[in-house]
């Protein structure tokens, strides 16, 4: 139950980031108040972009913010639940939109397993995502997989919340050139 809530929150995060981005971008900074401390002096203003700058279409940030770059798994499972499938369907549509983009699926695990078993489990998760994307019409040549096992947690914590965030497969846009 708790885990579901957490995951629900997580899946909302990209949207939240998105809306805050556009808000900051839209609302221009009207002035700096007594910032310069020079009364009657020239007050200049400049538009601020999003915290990370403009989103390049077809980039990792685009995928992360507008599509969702990751799916989550239950403990010791590589099964794709409904939320995961929806994310992957969006990813597939996005990949069709940017046919030049190739990606690597990184499979990850929480720390509650042996290192070697988790390497295998991470690979199984990455492969599950790849298979789903391929079935949705993405060429397998565009998708590499790698497993990091438990070596690269997204959340360094040691509780169920952290573990749920760490049991994931992340779609990463390959940087070419």
């Amino acid at each position: 139950m708790i885990r579901r809530t957490v995951l629900a929150l997580i899946s909302l995060m990209p949207l939240a980031a998105c809306s805050s981005n556009s808000e900051t971008a839209a609302g221009s900074t009207a002035g700096t108040g007594g910032g310069s401390g020079v009364p009657g002096g020239g007050v200049t203003s400049a538009e601020l972009g999003g915290p990370r700058g403009p989103i390049v279409p077809g980039s990792q940030q685009d995928l992360e913010v507008n599509v969702g770059d990751r799916v989550f798994f239950a403990f010791d499972s590589a099964a794709l639940d409904d939320a995961a499938r929806q994310t992957l369907e969006r990813q597939a549509a996005w990949l069709k939109q940017y046919p030049a983009v190739s990606v690597t699926i990184e499979g990850h695990c929480d720390e509650r397993g042996t290192r070697e078993y988790n390497l295998a489990l991470g690979e199984r998760r990455a492969q599950a995502v790849k298979n789903y994307l391929v079935a949705l019409g993405i060429s397998p040549d565009r998708i590499r997989t790698i497993s990091y096992g438990e070596e690269r947690p997204a959340d360094p914590g040691h509780d169920e919340t952290a573990w749920a965030l760490n049991r994931r497969a992340v779609t990463v846009v390959n940087v070419t050139g």
Binding site: A120, E123, R124, A126, Q127, A128
Partner: peptide, 9 residues
């Protein structure tokens, strides 16, 4: 060695 391929190790 263990070899992982196609989700199977």
């Amino acid at each position: 060695v263990s070899i992982a391929q196609e989700g199977n190790t």
